[in-house]
Nucleic acid binder design. Structure first.
Length: 484
RNA sequence: UCCUCCUUAGCUCAGUUGGUUAGAGCAUCUGACUGUUAAUCAGAGGGUCGCCCGUUCAAGUCGGGCAGGGGGAGCCA
């Protein structure tokens, strides 16, 4: 059998007592013609392979270059050096794959994140990205673990959709029609999508929510976790054209139940990462601290990464209504000194990210859940609150805002009353015929229900402290960029 | 899409009021050393100064356009 190796993470957890092992991995550095730092991706830590003088052919030693892949067999002994607890004294070294040192772009030194973004196919081999993507995995696994323990059904909603009704953003068109102008046309000159693959116009999904609601009204609780596509021309450190979203949808939930679940969920997956990827998070915390040394004092985080995560675990999220939030903003010194770029015009305004940041980072200094937003600025499916003052109608929506990231969750209790839902859809010019299947849930055994969407990459950003979303997804898709 | 900044060696960056042959550290190569921790020491090679146009006797340096990237904003998760 070829693969009879021990993973380095496992090896490092053992005591060095002369046992013989085989490891395989990639060379991080080769020092002094004698010490190989070998990494296999199972942990950020390397195993130090020691090559005894004269034990190996000179020609072979020359081929031990950065990122060459090796199979090493040897005996594990306590290290004579200071930096590590054990050495692997090599008895045999086999080069599985050479790495031309003149051509290999990554060096054993600090690289900028921007540079590594251009080398996204190799950046997993760096300490930073190794840690980021192991944490990403842990968070993804914890998502499934959390919902499975709560007996939610994992539902795969379609990637290709027809509903253009949600208004969640610009969509990518999916078609097999020719793009050279020869596509079949209608009499009015528009493209005849009846001739297209699906016999109608189709897009990549912007949300699985509407389909998720169909599942929730049968299984009770479901969640989705899949790719989501937005064709928006967004060029920021927190937007992607292709990202992963988690959308739980729960029957027999009101807005408060929804907020409770979202908060419990976020804490659960953070806790899982802290318990299972402590080394990676410690490394990332150190990286972040060093990066922040470059920043002026007032731009640095008040807490270190681990401190921040512990703080989030141990404190309740601040919950307040949109109305109260506007009041706080209005009365803030920040506003009185006219320091907001966008004026606080009063109830009904759509908050700008500077306003949200003020609430989260300056006023409360912890995650904040805002709820009961004005109906006019929110989506059609959100439940209309009863007993509102005329002109101040609200819906049972909630957004969770995280320090440094902004909106990480958006959710609501859904409008389960058919008549009210249809009236609102008509007002907002959403075609009822197209969503006949959605409306059927309100026709046949409708129930109070709620759900939310959590941007997975933003969650990974929050936990890893990476400031650019392009550094927490393997191969980012952004306007003008789809390499790899 | 808007505002703003940046683009000089493989990487990170310096380059004066426009002036002769564009520099440094790291990396690479050659050699030395051999218990190193981004090893160290000596030497060598390595440049279309993002691209195009212009101003000028002369442009890495000044002006315009384009491309790519960073930061911020909008849209949002």
């Amino acid at each position: 059998m070829f693969n009879k190796r021990i993973k380095i993470k496992e090896l490092l957890s053992q005591e060095p007592e002369g046992q013989e092992v085989t490891v395989m991995g990639w060379v991080r550095t080769f020092r002094n013609n004698q010490f190989i730092a070998l990494n296999d991706g199972s942990t950020n830590n390397n195993i130090q392979v020691v090559v005894a003088l004269g034990s190996q052919d000179d020609e072979l030693l020359k081929r031990i270059t950065t990122s060459a892949s090796l199979k090493v067999t040897g005996t594990v002994v306590p290290s004579l050096g200071k930096g590590q607890k054990m050495d692997l004294n090599a008895t045999s070294i086999e080069i599985l794959g050479d790495s031309d040192a003149e051509k290999y772009p990554l060096q054993p030194k600090k690289h900028s994140l921007e540079f590594l973004r251009e080398k996204a196919h190799l950046r997993f081999r760096t300490s930073t990205f190794g840690s980021v993507f192991r944490v990403r995995h842990a968070l993804a696994f914890a998502v499934h673990k959390f919902f499975n323990e709560k007996r939610f059904v994992y539902m795969h909603t379609p990637i290709i959709t027809v509903s253009d009704a949600e208004g969640a953003g610009e969509m990518f068109k999916v078609t097999t029609l020719p793009l050279d102008g020869t596509a079949p046309k209608n009499e009015d000159g528009s493209i005849n999508f009846k001739e297209d693959f699906f016999g109608r116009s189709t897009n990549l999904t912007v949300s699985g929510q509407l389909e998720g609601e169909l599942g929730a009204t049968a299984f009770g609780d479901i969640y989705t976790f899949g790719p989501t596509f937005r064709a928006e021309n967004s060029n920021t450190a927190r937007h992607l054209a292709e990202f992963w979203m988690i959308e739980p949808e729960m029957a027999f939930y009101d807005l408060e139940d929804n907020m409770n679940l979202a908060e419990e969920f976020i804490k659960y997956i953070i806790k899982y990462a802290l318990e299972n990827n402590k080394e990676d998070l410690e490394f990332l915390a150190q990286r972040l601290a060093e990066e922040e040394k470059q920043l002026p004092q007032d731009k640095r985080s008040e807490m270190g990464l681990l401190e921040k995560l512990e703080f989030v675990l141990n404190n309740g999220f601040e919950r307040l209504t949109y109305t109260d939030a506007i009041q706080i903003l209005k009365e803030s010194n920040h506003n009185k000194k006219k320091k907001f770029q966008y004026e606080i015009t009063g109830w009904g305004m759509d908050m700008q990210s500077e306003h949200e940041r003020y609430l989260v980072e300056k006023h409360f200094k912890k995650p904040v859940i805002l709820y009961n937003y004005p109906a006019a600025i929110k989506a059609f499916y959100m439940r209309q609150n009863d007993g509102c003052e005329p002109g101040k109608e609200t819906v049972a929506a909630m957004d969770i805002l995280a320090p440094g990231i902004g909106e990480i969750v958006g959710g609501s209790q859904r409008e389960e009353r058919q008549e009210k839902l249809e009236r609102r859809m008509t007002e907002m010019h959403i075609p009822l015929e197209e969503l006949w299947w959605y409306l059927d849930t309100r026709r046949f055994g409708t129930v109070p229900h709620a759900g939310f969407g959590l941007g997975f990459e933003r969650m990974v950003q929050f936990v890893t402290g990476m400031t650019n979303i392009r550094d927490v997804i393997a191969f980012p898709r952004t306007p003008g960029s789809a390499e790899f």
